[in-house]
C-alpha cells in the first residue's frame, strides 16, 4: 500500500516527496519505489534524487520545470507506484574481522549485552541489514535491522580518528565507516572492503534500498582478501535477496 505522498518545498530547486514519519522498511520501500520509477520514467528537469529514510529529495532545474509542474508530473506517476514491480534488492557480503585490535570495543559490547564476544559476533553477522540511505560521509550506509540484544551506547569520548572500514555499533544501529573520520561508535570489527573509491569507475559499493550481510573471517582470510583487493580483484560477493518477492 502506498500512503499519501506529501510534497514539501525545499527551496526553489529541490522538492521533498515524503511518505511518512517513521523509520520502517515499508515506508523506505516506497521511497525506493519512487526513485526507481523516476529512473525509468524520468521527468524532464530532474537533476538527481536522494533517497532518505522516509522521503525522496528531488533536486531539479527550475529553468526547465517549475515546482508546481513538477508536483503535477509526480502525481501523475503516483498511481503506478501501487503495482510497481521492483527488481529484488541486492545483498552485499562484507567480510569482517571481528575483535582484537580491529574491534577494540567488542569486549565492551559483549559485557554490556551480558554475553560472550562469540555470541555478539554470531548475532551481528546473522542478519541482513537494510541500507535505508547513504550519507553523513560519502558511501556511509545508515543500516536498519540490528538485533537490539547487542545494542550499546556510544563512546563517552569519541575517537579523534577512526579508520575507514571500521564496523561499529551506536545504540541500536550498526554501520561501516566509509572515510577516515572522527567518531563515537563502538568498534567491533574491520573490513578490508572499501565502500568508497573516489577515483574508481564505480566509486560506490552500496546503494540505498539494498542490503548488506557481515561474514566473520579470520586473520588468514583477511590477509588474502586484502591482497586480492590491492591487486585489483574484487573478493566480495553480491547476490539478490531471497525472501523478497520483488513488489511492494
Amino acid at each position: 500500500m502506498v500512503g499519501k505522498i506529501d510534497y514539501k518545498s525545499a527551496g526553489d530547486h529541490a522538492l521533498v516527496a515524503e511518505f511518512g514519519n517513521e523509520i520502517s522498511k515499508a515506508i523506505n520501500d516506497q521511497v525506493r519505489g519512487l526513485s526507481y520509477l523516476l529512473e525509468n520514467e524520468p521527468v524532464k528537469g530532474i537533476v538527481e534524487t536522494v533517497p532518505t529514510y522516509r522521503s525522496l529529495m528531488i533536486h531539479y532545474n527550475p529553468l526547465i520545470i517549475d515546482q508546481m509542474s513538477l508536483i503535477a508530473e509526480l502525481k501523475k506517476r503516483e498511481e503506478k507506484l501501487e503495482n510497481l514491480e521492483l527488481p529484488p534488492p541486492m545483498v552485499t557480503e562484507i567480510p569482517t574481522l571481528y575483535g582484537g585490535e580491529y574491534g577494540p570495543d567488542l569486549e565492551d559490547v559483549a559485557n554490556h549485552a551480558g554475553m560472550t564476544e562469540g555470541e555478539v559476533i554470531k548475532i551481528h553477522s546473522s542478519g541482513e541489514y537494510l541500507i535505508y540511505m547513504l550519507g553523513f560521509t560519502p558511501g556511509f550506509p545508515y543500516l536498519g535491522g540490528m538485533d537490539s540484544r547487542i545494542a550499546a551506547p556510544r563512546l563517552k569520548n569519541p575517537r579523534r580518528r577512526i579508520d575507514k572500514g571500521s564496523v561499529g555499533i551506536a545504540d541500536k544501529q550498526t554501520g561501516i565507516y566509509s572515510l577516515d573520520s572522527p567518531g563515537g561508535w563502538k568498534l567491533i570489527g574491520w573490513t578490508p572492503v572499501s565502500l568508497f573509491e573516489p577515483g574508481a569507475e564505480k566509486p560506490f559499493l552500496l546503494k540505498a534500498g539494498d542490503y548488506i550481510k557481515f561474514r566473520p573471517i579470520n586473520q588468514d582470510e583477511y590477509e588474502k582478501i586484502r591482497q586480492a583487493i590491492e591487486a585489483g580483484r574484487n573478493k566480495w560477493k553480491t547476490y539478490p535477496k531471497k525472501t523478497e518477492k520483488g513488489s511492494m
Binding site: H13, M133, G135
Partner: peptide, 29 residues
Amino acid sequence: IISDGVAMGAIQVPGQGQPILMMADTQTS
C-alpha cells in the same frame, strides 16, 4: 527529525535555536 535531504541554502535549526545556513559543501542529508 528523521534525517532527510538537504539542499544548498537550507536553514537548519538545531535544538539551541540558532540557525545554520547550509552552503556548497553541505551534507546531502
